[in-house]
Design a protein around this nucleic acid. Sequence first.
DNA 1: CTTATATACAACCATTTGGTTGTAGGTTAG
DNA 2: CTAACCTACAACCAAATGGTTGTATATAAG
Lengths: 136, 136
Amino acid sequence: MVVYKPSSRDRLEEADIDRIFQALADATRRDILRQSMLREQSVSELARNYSMSFAAVQKHVAVLERALLVTKERRGREQIVHSNPAALRRAARLLDAYEALWRDRIDRLGDLLSEPGTEAPRPDTPGNDTRKDTQQ
Amino acid sequence: MVVYKPSSRDRLEEADIDRIFQALADATRRDILRQSMLREQSVSELARNYSMSFAAVQKHVAVLERALLVTKERRGREQIVHSNPAALRRAARLLDAYEALWRDRIDRLGDLLSEPGTEAPRPDTPGNDTRKDTQQ
DNA sequence: CTTATATACAACCATTTGGTTGTAGGTTAG
DNA sequence: CTAACCTACAACCAAATGGTTGTATATAAG
């Protein structure tokens, strides 16, 4: 009944995660990230790859930066973008955690199913449903 | 110079990925996803957990659904939300691919460093486009 | 039958997003 | 020094987001 009452520390965390996924939710930004993982480049160098204004790419880089997926380092008159794989790994692990969560549920369902005589696929047992949900 | 010219098939893929990350970029939606992984619930049942209107939660579920992270199944007067871990796994693997990409680069740098006398970490190798494109 | 519940959906609103152009300042090249 | 280049940043705009309320409809419960 409680649920979704993140501690003040978690709240910050959640906002971080928001920024990471939001940054990844744009194909141009994902490409910029990929490019800067392949080779560290200046913003304008990156910008040449896309059919949009320099300022637009600059903004995309800023979004990636805010999500800590990249950092910028001044080098003379240009700003070099380098990727920060730590944040990426964090996101990947987060998704793994979700998957693990689901696997746990399946395991529990497996336990239920292994109980003898419990065949009904849709009992009105208050202990909830027995769906397999192996979809896709 | 080319770059970012996704094939028409990739373009669809990219849009799918957009939707997945965008769906994950909101703490409430991530929580809804978690909830429905723990136990399949109706929309209104889910909605009771949050301090926002039913309609808002309904919209959040719709976003998750559009990203194929969950599906809905009518059961009597209520709509049961169940999670679809396949999409989640896809996203996790995508992030893994990015990481791998970065690891490749590090490996290449390692190679450079192991070459005697080659200290410069910033070679201006013009033969660029060493794209691996291990995406997805 | 009547009422309560679960959903669907439209209309509206404020804020954010993703893009543009324009201006200005710092840095390098000739 | 001057010109070209790279970046920063403001102002503006259309569209998408995340929320609201209100209305309608189908199903379940009494």
